[in-house]
Amino acid sequence: MGFPDGSVLNVFAAVVPRTRDGAYILGEMGPHTAAAGRVYFPCGTPDPTDIAPDGRVDLAVSALRELHEETGLVAREISPEAPDPGWAIVRDGGLMALLRPVPLAEDEATVRDAIAAHLAAEAEPELSAIVSVRRAADLDPARMPGFVRHYLASVLA
């Protein structure tokens, strides 16, 4: 039914990983998932482990947890010398994506190899493939939701 009540939003945090040599890394959802074949940034709905002791939902923790669960990448692989990139918010109909750019310390080939090893070790990986985006021509309207395309189009312009 989509979002019959326009005041209801699905709000979620996502990491926007970018390799040292400029590739944005996305994942194609596996065939057993509800979004099979769709291409996203690592993301998901916050869960109880993302709630800080004071009751606040830690969106950065949530987004980094999703990055690790889906790709095997961990915080130590994030470039430590990069300035804090902040957050971008992209609304796409009933979706509100809270996007956290994350510069990775490694190049695309190294990151792809690490993710491939992670996926191969899982019994049922959430992702079926890794997709790299370097230019607007790489955007795929048939498989990428609007919030992904809108964000990437803005940073690739």
Score class of each variant (00 low, 15 high):
A52M: 12
I115G: 02
E77L: 05
E108Q: 11
A120F: 01
T110K: 00
G72E: 08
D92Q: 10
A60D: 13
D50A: 10
C43G: 12
P125T: 08
H68I: 01
E66Q: 14
R112E: 00
V131Q: 02
A88S: 15
D138S: 04
P103E: 02
P125K: 04
G55M: 11
A142G: 09
D84P: 00
H150F: 10
C43M: 12
L104C: 10
A136V: 14
I51D: 05
E69K: 07
S62T: 06
R91G: 10
V57A: 12
L119M: 11
V102Q: 12
A63C: 06
A142C: 13
I78H: 14
L119T: 00
G72M: 08
E108H: 07
V111F: 02
V39W: 04
L119N: 04
D84Q: 06
V131W: 08
P141T: 06
L64V: 13
A109M: 03
H118Q: 10
E70V: 04
A116W: 00
R65F: 01
C43N: 13
P145C: 08
I89Q: 14
L67H: 03
G44C: 01
A137Y: 14
L64W: 10
L127Y: 14
L67I: 10
L139I: 03
F41E: 06
G72R: 10
V61W: 13
D50K: 05
A120L: 02
V148A: 03
E70I: 05
W87I: 03
L139H: 06
D84A: 14
V61K: 11
P80I: 07
P83Q: 13
G94L: 11
D107Q: 09
E66H: 15
L119C: 05
G93Q: 13
L59A: 09
A121T: 10
T49P: 07
A63K: 00
E124G: 02
D113Y: 04
P46G: 11
I89F: 10
S62A: 15
H68R: 13
W87E: 07
L119W: 01
D92C: 11
E81I: 05
D92P: 05
E66W: 13
P101C: 05
T49C: 00
V133T: 04
R143F: 02
I51H: 00
P125F: 05
R100D: 08
L59G: 09
I130F: 03
I51T: 13
E126C: 11
S132G: 14
V131M: 05
P48E: 12
E122I: 09
V90R: 01
M96E: 15
L73Q: 07
P85S: 08
E126Q: 12
T71G: 03
E108A: 15
E81H: 01
I78D: 04
